[in-house]
Design a protein around this nucleic acid. Structure first.
Lengths: 124, 124
DNA sequence: ATTAAACTTGAGAATGTTTATCACTTTTTA
DNA sequence: TAAAAAGTGATAAACATTCTCAAGTTTAAT
């Protein structure tokens, strides 16, 4: 990857504020600095940055794709109403539901762990 | 929800085989029994069934949306190559990476837990 | 059984999201 | 500083999902 001003700006937008923005939100913020930036450029760069493991793509059943500047192990709480994504640290998972209610006022309704990797068939 | 043959067929397709099919895969299987079934009907019913908690929608960063006939607490392993989704039981999570390698030959590269619910702002 | 209301369907249009294309510009390399 | 490689904006294309609606089913109350 070569350097580019636009990609750098996109990276900063996602890294600097843990709001887990959607593509559209990144686009709106990027336009403040580069008024002519195209939506395609935002998609292209978010995807490249994810593929290089610099950002993480988050997909949930509720709402649209979002991006996360944190790539270390942690969890996400996703609100079914506003679809915002909140970070949860590993330790906060012990005694899950009560703890999340006490700490964040977040009412857990279901959760899902997904593990990415390569299956035994594809490793061949 | 009224009864309908098509919805029932769609439900059976997802419930009977733990392949976690995509919309398109459900559509292809449903056409064997209802050759005129429309893709819109498949989307409509998969969404209704998920909204009623009868099926679960699975979204991952790799590949497309899939549906799961199991709604009890369990995990998913998603292959980055073939994008298939495999079930993992809760107990199998202790000593995660080694255990999954021993048991399934699945090489874990990253994982993510997402918790759905309602945040403190939206509860107001 | 008959009927009315509510629900569902298939077909296709409409919308929304994401990727591809291409002439041009920027960055890197040597 | 020139050539190669990579990136950009604009727009078209591809793909995914939802919407619309006339016609057909299912349900519940006569």
């Amino acid at each position: 990857m070569n350097y580019s001003q636009q990609r750098n700006c996109i990276l900063e937008i996602v890294m600097s504020d843990p709001v887990h923005p959607t593509v559209e939100q990144v686009y709106e913020k990027a336009k403040l600095r580069y008024p002519n930036i195209s939506l395609g450029t935002v998609y292209r760069n978010l995807n490249q940055l994810s593929e290089h493991g610099i950002l993480k793509k988050i997909c949930s059943s509720y709402g649209s794709v979002r991006f996360d500047g944190r790539t270390d192990a942690h969890f996400h709480m996703i609100c079914k109403d506003c679809q915002r994504v909140f970070d949860v640290e590993l330790g906060e998972m012990l005694g899950l539901e009560d703890k999340l209610m006490d700490k964040f006022g977040f009412q857990v309704s279901e959760y899902e762990i997904s593990i990415q990797g390569v299956c035994c068939d594809c490793k061949k």
